[in-house]
């Protein structure tokens, strides 16, 4: 499908151009999500896109679906309600690193634990962009932010490891540079039954890059290109060799009972007992 056809079909064109800064990765990820939805062949009328608060969470407003822009950190809680009330709907959550890993961290691990059929795409730009560049739980330790003028003290999360440990059944990491792979990873997540999670290493040239010697979007994508190691290549490297790098691709996949399907069995059991 051409870009014109994609935009016509899947976006609210009258809301574009978007509010994001020059070189921001959010538009690349939103484009990848749209292409992945198309590739996975989801039913547009039966798809709900839910977000929290932050730059990335503005994405659903540009997308021609049923869209829900919730409170900060709570997208997964709202999405859980949508999915439980109407399990036939495809529910996609678009969230940022602060939204999902800090204020929404509790909801993230519990949604993963339940293995509820949601597809979560995290726009990880290592920073709170909407409020002007404060550090998040994913800001690499030692980097600079407006609230870390001497460098961050906090250790940063590996979100994919966290979600995997919590019980997520599809876990992947992509980048805005490796766009084709990203589309495939999101598409595979959409096709997976259960809690699917895709972390996208993205760029905020305005608030992260400028403070951390990556002064442009181009420099930040170069950094991604140099530091990302595909899963297969990573398997052949020692931890020493992987130091300072990050692994991209499908990191984890397993089959496990999905929450709404198990609950449907509860309903059947409760109704059977009533007879």
């Amino acid at each position: 499908m051409s870009i014109e056809e994609l935009l016509e079909r899947y976006t609210r064109r009258d809301k574009l151009p978007h509010i994001w800064c020059p070189g921001c990765g959010n538009g690349i990820i939103m484009g990848a999500v749209i292409r992945a939805l198309d590739q996975a062949g989801v039913d547009q009328k039966k798809t709900v896109i839910v977000s929290g608060i932050g730059c990335s969470s503005r994405a659903p407003g540009y997308m021609k679906f049923d869209t829900l822009h919730t409170t900060h950190g709570r997208a997964l809680a709202y999405a859980t309600g949508v999915k439980l009330a109407r399990p036939e709907l495809k529910v996609v959550v678009l969230t940022g690193d602060g939204d999902c890993a800090a204020i929404g961290g509790n909801h993230l691990i519990h949604a993963a634990r339940r293995n509820i059929d949601l597809t979560v795409v995290v726009f990880n730009n290592d920073i709170y962009g909407m409020t002007g560049g404060q550090y998040s739980p994913l800001t690499p330790q030692g980097s600079y932010a407006t609230t870390a003028p001497y460098g961050t003290v906090d250790r940063n999360f590996d979100l994919c490891e966290l979600v995997k440990a919590a019980g997520g059944t599809y876990v992947a990491r992509g980048t805005t540079y490796h766009t084709r792979m990203l589309i495939d990873l999101i598409s595979a997540g959409l096709g997976h039954k259960g809690f699917s999670f895709i972390e996208v290493v993205s760029q905020c040239p305005m608030y992260y890059g400028r403070k951390n010697k990556l002064a442009s979007a181009v420099a930040m994508l170069e950094w991604q290109k140099e530091h990302a190691v595909p899963v297969k290549a990573a398997a052949k490297l020692t931890p020493e060799q992987l130091k300072g790098k990050f692994v991209i691709g499908e990191l984890h996949r397993e089959e496990a009972p999905e929450y709404t399907e198990v609950y449907a069995e509860v309903v059947a059991r409760a109704r059977g007992e009533e007879k």
């Binding site: 870009i3 014109e4 935009l7 574009l16 151009p17 538009g27 690349i28 484009g31 979007a217 994508l221």
Partner: peptide, 12 residues
């Protein structure tokens, strides 16, 4: 096209 953050490029 895929990497344009602004949906501004079209291959046609």
């Amino acid at each position: 096209e895929l990497r344009c953050p602004d949906f501004a490029i079209s291959l046609g």
